[in-house]
Design a protein around this nucleic acid. Structure first.
Lengths: 406, 406
DNA sequence: TTAGTTCGTCTTTCGACTAAACAAACTAAC
DNA sequence: GTTAGTTTGTTTAGTCGAAAGACGAACTAA
């Protein structure tokens, strides 16, 4: 079946060709190195058709022939691999305390990974946007210097982003109605590649579904563990977009009506209990937060140190945080029935102490049969997940058949 | 773009044809009566192609030519309409207190609508399944007697249903691991059409997206208001299926940890506060529930009567129920960002008293900008929504291009 | 050396869409 | 009443891309 539902949108030969090019490209991505004959057998496409498609992909320098197979009955096969080198996609990630830039090639190899500190709340939206755009430009130049074509650039922002790239609201950055896409586009001098802006959780879950431990899962949820908590959701293989483009806002679910005050004005929001600043405040009460958000990594390291040293207060606090997180996760699980829930961001180093409580709470609250239950795990990607995901969205377009023109 | 992501799944000419047949069929469904030329102009397909596609659809008796246009410049157009008459799809709905059967033709006209009482919990799963299968057989026979071909039959069940039609768990029916699809299939004598079983909320939301007040909304949530509460979710135009097929389990989210006991063993679940038996127990404490579930319509009618009479206790109770429901809805809204949330089942008659509280709670808890917010409304479909949706799933296959063979 | 196997290309055929011309059927205007 | 102009839907020719199957190439095994 070609398209489903929604509106008149007929198909023609170009669609068939694009679909089949994408099928071959994705097959090679998953099974490289492989031969034309193998592709034909696995996909059901005719051998001649595969040859034609592969030739097209080689012309566009998306595939490359490597050596032959040896020591097998019959004519040896010429093996095909992804040729990442001529292209790259760039992802940027904005956080309250740092910026990240990542570039990956078509084969998924990271060709660039930068992190620089950033004073999100301290700077004005205009200043911040300028800093982001500058980082983007430097990344683009670096990629161009390596003789790669840039296929696209996507920026991840912790907040609500409209489909046309306007940051409607980003409390932890102090932004409201910032047209970041236009700003970056202008700073890059209206480049020939698409620039996009998206929510960080949406992008991180894409990275997770491509490069994470559970790559390929069709129903996957990623929880950002930064100053705020957001969910990126992949359902039936597609990222959830929602009506206005703002799904996954889980941070302000009430977990405990008598809980601590939240920035949103209510009490006991998930974010106010399990957000990283809340965790730090709880485990390290002596580090009285001055409200300023700086790079929180040192504080998180200290929390980990205490937990490792079996500090009872720390262990108790983390258990309670894990339980709150478990309540939130159980809601997600019951509503969306995912295969895996991946915890990201600052939750990763804390996972050994959070996960048991999460699992306990989840077992108690999950509806449905026991067998084949959901898995909860810490991400194996580093903090640049959203940036990596930003680059991945660009590659998704290629994988879906929109090949770069010759 | 043709298919997205997931596995090798190449396209060929048959897919193009199926897609375009579906495009034409859907266009006529939405714009009947219309001419071939109009279809060509609206879809971008060539006039000749449209003629060929229409001829095919007329051959299969899915379309029919009606008269000509008159009194216009140029050659008059021959108008096309859906020809519902040769086919019908059947939907059954199982509830704790009643069964429903609905049949609709391809044009969406209801050609059959039965409701009979049913003692879900009182009968054994085998007895119940037999009763359901018998109802299905009678519906099939009625449709056949009208010289219609049956395209398919789908049963909606309030519980967890695996993709292959096994009811894993249906607490309000007392079922566990009942292979309802096989039972119905056998009772119908292995008919030539597909038989499916699905969750009632999943089906109801499909009915809502086709025939409800907000038909066509791409992001739609339906809340069943029966003995249990479940959510049917349509996201980006597609029903959410989840990893194991059990999404939408919202009934056991904890709303108030100090709330009433729930059948699941915890306290203050949404279902225990806003399920219809909980509402009745609250508004009509004198009707001490004997645990037996009979047809609850009389009790609901009495609740409505008291609310209409401005009985203070009833109004207060309904306001509190509405607030609890609002908390649940706000979680759905923040997580999924729908365009509309439709309340169904017994919530419909109670909506005038529930909706204000729901809206209040939602306004307070919704994250994101005010403008363009979500709408909450009572369904305009009757109790047979899930049955209608069951029939609609069958039509969806036709609309997606899988035409009935000649 | 020969038989058997596998790979990838070549050629033909077929199905489906597009473009453009055209006949049919009507209105409007002189 | 005739002619010009419009719109519809069909016909014809052309293009594109996949399928089918033959075929040469390159290798192993006997």
């Amino acid at each position: 079946m070609i398209t489903m539902q929604r509106g008149p949108q007929p198909a023609d030969f170009a669609d068939v060709r694009a679909t089949n090019l994408a099928v071959v490209l994705r097959y090679v991505r998953g099974h490289a190195p492989c031969s034309r004959a193998e592709i034909a057998a696995a996909t059901g496409l005719n051998k001649a058709t595969v040859s034609s498609l592969v030739a097209d992909l080689i012309d566009r320098r998306l595939l490359r022939e490597t050596g032959l197979t040896e020591h097998r009955i019959g004519r040896p096969a010429t093996m095909l691999v992804l040729d990442g080198s001529p292209y790259a996609a760039i992802g940027l990630e904005v956080n309250a305390d740092y910026l990240t830039a990542v570039a990956i090639d078509l084969a998924g190899q990271q060709v660039l990974s930068w992190r620089r500190s950033f004073a999100g709340l301290a700077s004005s939206p205009a200043q911040a946007a300028t800093a982001i755009a500058a980082l983007g430009r430097r990344a683009v130049n670096r990629v161009l210097k390596e003789d790669r074509r840039v296929l696209g650039l996507t920026v991840g922002v912790p907040g609500l982003v409209s489909p046309d790239g306007v940051v409607i609201m980003a409390p932890n950055l102090g932004w409201r109605d910032v047209n970041l896409r236009d700003i970056v586009n202008r700073a890059l001098g209206e480049p020939g590649f698409p620039v996009a802006v998206d929510n960080d959780a949406n992008l991180a879950v894409l990275a997770e579904s491509r490069y994470g431990e559970f790559a390929g899962a069709q129903n996957l949820i990623y929880l950002t563990g930064e100053v705020g908590i957001g969910a990126g959701i992949i359902s039936d293989g597609h990222p959830l977009r929602g009506h206005r483009g703002f799904p996954g806002e889980i941070g302000h679910i009430t977990i405990d009506p008598q809980g601590p005050e939240c920035g949103c004005g209510r009490r006991g929001c998930l974010e106010a209990i399990a957000g990283i600043t809340a965790i730090i405040a709880r485990v390290l009460p002596e580090v009285a937060g001055d409200g300023d958000i700086t790079d929180l990594q040192p504080e998180v390291d200290e929390v980990v140190r205490r937990a490792r040293g079996n500090d009872p207060a720390a262990l108790r606090a983390l258990d309670e945080v894990g339980r709150a997180l478990g309540v939130g996760v159980s809601i997600l699980v019951n509503l969306l029935d995912p295969e895996v829930v991946v915890l990201g961001g600052y939750f990763v180093p804390l996972a050994p102490w959070l996960l048991p409580a999460v699992e306990t709470e989840l077992r108690a609250r999950r509806v449905g049969p026991e067998q084949g239950g959901v898995r909860v795990a810490a991400s194996i990607l580093d903090h640049g997940a959203a940036a990596t995901g930003g680059a991945a969205t660009v590659l998704d377009h290629v994988d879906a058949g929109r090949l770069p023109r010759l």
